[in-house]
């Protein structure tokens, strides 16, 4: 259940990011999770709801964008998106590809805030 630790880091990072803004609440946050990042979306959502209680993020919707694995194929000399997380092999020419360009993401993309009305 490392999703709990990740949720803790996510909530503190998001709270820190909106601290300077004059907002009444956060309505949603969007994150990017790579296929190789070993994160279970439902567990993360569950933990996020628990951890965000009592913060500006309470009740915010957690939107998860799944990022597929993209490798660089030295033979084709281009990036190749893989349909599955393994094998790490070019789908065009079958060359083994150890150079993972995407798929390990664990990023806070954006925060949707509701501004305080004047």
């Amino acid at each position: 259940m490392h999703e709990l630790s990740i949720a803790n880091h996510l909530v503190s990072l998001a709270c820190q990011s909106v601290r300077q803004e004059d907002v009444t609440r956060v309505s949603a946050i969007t994150i990017r999770v790579g296929a190789l990042a070993c994160v279970h979306p439902d567990s993360l959502k569950f933990c996020f709801d628990a951890v965000s209680e009592g913060t500006l993020l309470e009740g915010a919707e957690l939107r998860i964008i799944s990022v597929p694995v993209v490798v660089y194929c030295p033979t084709c000399q281009c990036e190749i998106e893989l349909p599955e997380i393994q094998p790490l092999r070019c789908t065009v020419c079958q060359t083994p590809c150890g150079d993972v360009r995407h798929g390990n993401e664990l990023e806070l993309e954006s925060i949707e805030v509701v501004d305080a009305s004047d």
Binding site: S17, V18, L108, E109, S110, I111, D115
Partner: peptide, 18 residues
């Protein structure tokens, strides 16, 4: 009705650890 505003962050979630 106040429209929500999007703040682009693009930061690694485990930034503090990293």
């Amino acid at each position: 009705m106040i429209e929500p505003r999007i703040l682009a962050v693009r930061t690694k979630i485990l930034k503090k650890n990293d």
